[in-house]
Computed example of a mutant assay.
Amino acid sequence: MRIQNVALIGLGAMGSFFAPRIEQYLGRQNFQVIASGKRKERLEKQGVTINGVNYRFTVRQPEEQGPKADLIIMAMKDMGLDQAIEDIRNLVGENTQILCVMNGIDSEERVAAAYGWEHVMYSYMRMSIVMKDGTADFDPYWGKVHFGEAKNEELTPRTERIRDFFENCDIPYQIDTDMKRGIWFKYMCNVGENLTCALLGIPFGAFRSSDSANAIRRGAMREVMAIANKKGIPLTEQDIEDQEATVRNIPFANKPSTLQDLEGKKKTEVEMFAGTVVRLGKELGVPTPISWMFYHGIKVYEEKNEGKFEIE
C-alpha cells in the first residue's frame, strides 16, 4: 500500500529536511505539520524559511479529528518527546508507521511503549543544518535519513514501502544492516562532536586544525564506545577513525545543535547526551570524566543564560 498521507511533528532543523520535499510530492492536502498554541500561530503567520524559500505548510492541531497518517515523522528535541507521543495519538491508525528521527538512543522504545512495535521503526539522521530564527540553511543532499527494522539483511514490506516513498520524494536515505549499531554510532559522534563544540563555543571547522579539540572529541567518543560495548553494541576504534573524514568535511562555520541552543539561550539536550552517558557509566562501571565535564559545564552555560550570575 502506497504512502499517501504524512504528518510531521517537529518542524525544526531535522523537520526542515523532510517537509518541502514531502509536500511537493504529496501535495498540500496530504502533508500536515502537527503543532498547537503559539507555535501553530507562528507557523501559519510567519511560516518557516528553508534554503531561502518561505513555506506555509498545513498545520493540524493534535486534538483535531481527521484522516489517519500512513507515516508520522517525529523530529522534535528529546525534552519534547513525551508530549509529542500524546500529540500524535489522533493520527495513529491500523497501518500507521512512525519514524522518530530525533537524537538519542531510546526514543523508539518510548514510542513503542505507547503504540507498539508494529507501528515503530528504527531511524536516525546524519546531517548538519544551521537553523536560526525560523530559517534553515543546508545542502539537501549532504545528509540522509537512516531507517529500517533492527536488522535488515532482508527488507520487510514496511521497510520497502517507506524506501519507495523516500525515493519518490527525492529524500536521501540509507537502510542499515544493523540499525541499533547505527543509532549508537551516531550517538557516539554526537556526544563527541556536538558537546565539544558546545562547551568550547567552537564551530565544526575547529576539528580541522585543533589537536586539543580533537583529543576531547575522541575521548568522549571512547566513553560512549565503552558503554555501547558493555551493552552488546559492537562499536570499535575503527568507527572513530572512519568518522574523521566526515567531521572534517562538515562546512567550517556550521555549529551543532547544542551550541545553537546555547547561543539562542534555549534549553539544550545535555540530559539526553552527557547526562545519559554519565548515568549509564555509573550503572555499567565505565568511567565517564569527559561526559561528566560536558554535563556540568553546559549546565553552567544554561544557568548563565537564565541570568543566574548577573551582577546587580
Score class of each variant (00 low, 15 high):
Phe309Pro: 07
Gln243Met: 03
Thr177Phe: 08
Gly37Ser: 13
Phe138Pro: 04
Ala112Lys: 02
Thr196Gly: 01
Leu280Phe: 12
Asp133His: 14
Thr156Gln: 15
Pro287Leu: 08
Ile311Gly: 00
Glu63Asp: 14
Gly192Leu: 05
Ile88Pro: 08
Leu26Ser: 00
Lys144Tyr: 15
Gly143Glu: 03
Val120Ile: 13
Lys231Gln: 12
Ala220Cys: 07
Asn5Ser: 11
Phe17Lys: 06
Gly205Thr: 04
Met1Asp: 03
Thr258Gly: 07
Gly12Phe: 13
Met102Gly: 09
Arg158Leu: 01
Val286Ile: 15
Met293Gly: 00
Glu241Phe: 14
Gly37Met: 02
Glu94Asp: 12
Asn305Gln: 10
Lys38Pro: 08
Met179Gln: 11
Asp133Lys: 14
Leu99Ile: 02
Glu23Asn: 08
Val6Tyr: 06
Asp261Pro: 05
Glu44Pro: 01
Ala198Met: 01
Gly307Trp: 13
His119Asp: 08
Tyr124Trp: 15
Glu108Gln: 13
Ala226Tyr: 03
Cys197Phe: 04
Ile73Ala: 00
Ser123Gly: 13
Gly148Phe: 10
Asn95Pro: 05
Gln29Glu: 15
Asn51Trp: 12
Arg110Cys: 03
Arg208Pro: 02
Val48Cys: 00
Asn214Ser: 12
Lys265Phe: 14
Ile50Leu: 07
Met131Lys: 12
Gly37Pro: 07
Thr156Lys: 14
Asn190Val: 00
Ser257Thr: 02
Pro203His: 08
Asp176Val: 03
Lys304Phe: 12
Met121Pro: 12
Arg163Thr: 13
Lys231Phe: 07
Glu302Ala: 00
Gly80Ile: 00
Gln24Asp: 13
